[in-house]
Structures are given as structure tokens and as C-alpha cells.
Design a protein around this nucleic acid. Sequence first.
RNA 1: GCUGAGGUAGCUUAGCCAGGCCUAAAGCGCCGGCCUUGAGAGCCGGUGGCGCCUUGCGCGCCGCGGGGGUUCAAAUCCCCCCCUCAGCGCCA
Length: 431
Amino acid sequence: MLDMNFIRENPDKVRWMLEVRGVDADLDSLLEWDRRFREATTKVNELRHRRNVVAESIPRVKDSEEKRKLIEESREINRRIKELEAERREALRRRDEIRLLIPNMPRPSVPIGKDEDDNRVVREWGEKPTFNFPVKSHQDIGEDLDIIDFTRGSRMAGTGFYVLKGDGARLERALINFMLDLHKEQGYIEIFPPILVKPEAMTGTGQLPKFKDDMYWCERDDLYLIPTAEVPVTNLHMNEILSAEDLPIYYTSYTPCFRREAGRHLYEKGVIRVHQFNKVELVKFSLPEESDEELEKLTADAEEVLKRLKLHYRVVQLCTGDLGFSSANTYDLEVWMPSFETYVEVSSCSTFTDFQARRAKIRFKRKAHLESEFVHTLNGSGVAIGRTMAAILENYQLEDGRVEIPKVLRPYMGGQEVIEKPEKRITLFKS
RNA sequence: GCUGAGGUAGCUUAGCCAGGCCUAAAGCGCCGGCCUUGAGAGCCGGUGGCGCCUUGCGCGCCGCGGGGGUUCAAAUCCCCCCCUCAGCGCCA
């Protein structure tokens, strides 16, 4: 959420932002409701003042006739306040209804552009692997090695769910542990948060109200399954005032993530777009003046995962038209997928400046006597597990169908070096 | 899930039963000033949000977990919800 004073004083900047993001929001109505809200606020304040003066004088008045008159006046004022107050609240409600749908202001470095074609490739690391045999997709590899079971996953939970088995499940677990250990080295504190959270938390990080349909909701308890650890970890400090000397704070968190992907086409088969996936997340709380630099460092920390796994990737800075709702600047990490012959996003590292902090009321003080200010929040995947596993299966595949295990993961898999076809497969009964 | 006790400013606490000089007191922390060679102590003042304009060392409103209600008047009385703690129940 943008600062109301900023919107009021810089309507042209906000209008420009909506333009370059390609977002349609009714800024004129917002400003009009704001004007009406402030007008009504002033009137209500004047009436309340009069009422307070009258109410205060009543116990001092001895004459009962005069007292009766004052009480009557007070009652009349209350009637008028009630009317005006209704107007005031309606104007505020309408104003903030629109304001909650206004996206964040991009940082100056963000390229102007319409869609993903205008994103800027910032850097590349490593080289595309070459194969002297026909490459297989991670779906086929997963099924051939009997480590990913799409059929049984969707049978019990529907499309968009899959089951990991044997070395597949172990590899997933190895990736989680490898990433968490790496991020601990990099100075992040590990968090294991609630996976279900209240609507306030979802509003704090910006998922609500705009993306309600993209999330799983438990109606009975009014709780939402988290779409990313960003939600519970950022809200760790909601409604708090932190000390400047504690900033920046670095957190890392492994959680499952749940996304309905409403109205979106799910890939026929595969782990790229699914309803449930695992992710290790990085979250930072920083001083406003340090957040741009912290984003660069956070991105580098996420990149380190891919470097150690020796996976070819590139870093892309999103243009204004492709930037997420709450983000002020985003770098996507995209890993090379041989079977797709393209890059797939495994991480999205963003700074939200004070946008989330204002919603979630995460503040800090530099000195006890100074005003509290909003912190800057940042986060990025470090990185998405399922997609990374897919990238490993494809990039590390061998001609004989086996898959080599990246060296850094071997200690997490009891020293195992390759994933082989299982000796035994659980098959259906055949007569 | 039940019962009880709680939630007050950056923090710690009083006020609540008996509604009204409550302008929410006090302490701590922090900032400024006085004093001092300097520091400390001491003393004085400041230290939440919003709105308004004559932008003044201004005026007003709001603010006591959140939301309603009663009343001329609510931190205080009533109702609903959230959270914390203790005990009981249930349970991986």
C-alpha cells in the first residue's frame, strides 16, 4: 500500500506508474474519495469538539433547566455526528478499497516495458550443457527411474499433484537441507512457520484482497494455506516496532507452498506448475537506505545455490509491465531446462520497499525519541525445490537413463553418486 | 472445547469494582536545555496517529487488543471477536 500523503502530493507520479505497469486503477476516484473523507473528517471533528465542550460543562451546571437544554443540544449534535460519520467512513472505505489495488512504485533502475519481452537479462552464469544423445524431459526421467509418480498423485489429489518416491523423495529432502545449510552459512536465521495463516497476514503481504482466488481457504476457520513462506515469515514482525540496530534481519525458511493456479493452464505433466510444491525462502527486513543493496546481496545468495549445483542460469530484471503487484524491483533467476530448450524461473528476488511494511505495520526506530519508520521488506526463493529437481534431472541425465547426483548433494544422500533404475517396481497385479 | 486471570503509549506498570477536572498518572529508556572543566546526579521540557489552516514552538479530533452498543459523557458499564497465561478436557 502506498502512503496516502505520497499519492495526494504526487498524483502524476502514481498515474505514470499505473501507465508503465499497464494497470488500470481509478486514481481520480481515489483522490475524490480522499477529498470527501478529509472534508467529512474536519466537520465531524468540529462537531465532536462542541459535544465534548458541552458534555464537560454539564456536571458543573446547577440550574436544572439549563442542564436539560445542554443535554438536548448534545443529543442533537450526536444525531448529526452519526450521519456525517457514516459519510466519512464510507468515503474512507471507498478510498482504501481503491488504494489496496494500487501497486507499488518501481525503483528507478527498473526498465520500462510492456511485458516479459521487455525484461532485461542482467547476467548469465555457466554454459548450456551439450548432449550427444536425445535428451529426455524430467517427466520421462522421473517416471523411467520410478522416482516421480504423477498418476498416483493426481488419482488421490487431482491434477497438479505428484508423488515423490525412493531417490526422488531423498533428492527433494537433500535439496532442502543443502539450501538451508547454505543460507545459514550466509547469515540467515532458519524459521519453520505456520503453514495456515489468518486473513490479516495475507493482507499484510499483499496476497489479499487481490489474489484471494489463487489461494486455498479453510472456510470453517477462516485460515489460508500459504502460497509462499514469504507470508508467515514477513508477518513474523507484523505490528512490531524493531530497533534500527537489529536491522538488517535475515531469515530463511523451508515450507510447502500451495497455489490454486485458478484459471491457469497446468502443464500436461511435470513439476513446473503444480498446486503444491516445496520452497526454501529468503526474507529480509532492512533499513530503507540499504534495501537496494540488500536486494543485490539477496539475489547473489540465491544464485549461490545454482552455482554450487552447477546449473546454467541467467538473471533477469523484470520490466515495469511484468513486475509483481507489491514489488518495487525484481530479479528472476531462470535455470536452463534442456528438454524445453528454454529457461525456467526458479527464484524471484524482490524488494517491496515500505509497501508490505505499511500494510503489516512493521516499523523500526532509530532512536527512542524519534518517530518510528516503516522497514523495507525483501524476499526471494532460495530456491524453488521442485523446479530445481526437474532441472537437475534434465541437466544431469546420462545416456543410459541414469542421473548423476550433483556433488554438493551427495553428502546429503549418504554419498550416493547416481540415481539408478530401481531393481524392483511396485506394479499392478497381472494375471 | 470448558473455566479463570489478563491485553493501557518504545518498554514496565497504575487507573476499571463505585463513568465526569483523565489534559490517561508514574517509572525506565531516549532527546534537548539548565548546572558542570567533562561525565554522572539533580532540576525543567519533550518523546502515538489523523485532520485543519492564519505553518504556529498553533487549533482540534482520535487513541487504553479489535469491532459494536448504552450514556449528555466510556480505559471504566454491556455484547461479539482476536491474542496471551494458568488449570481441566481431548489428541498426533
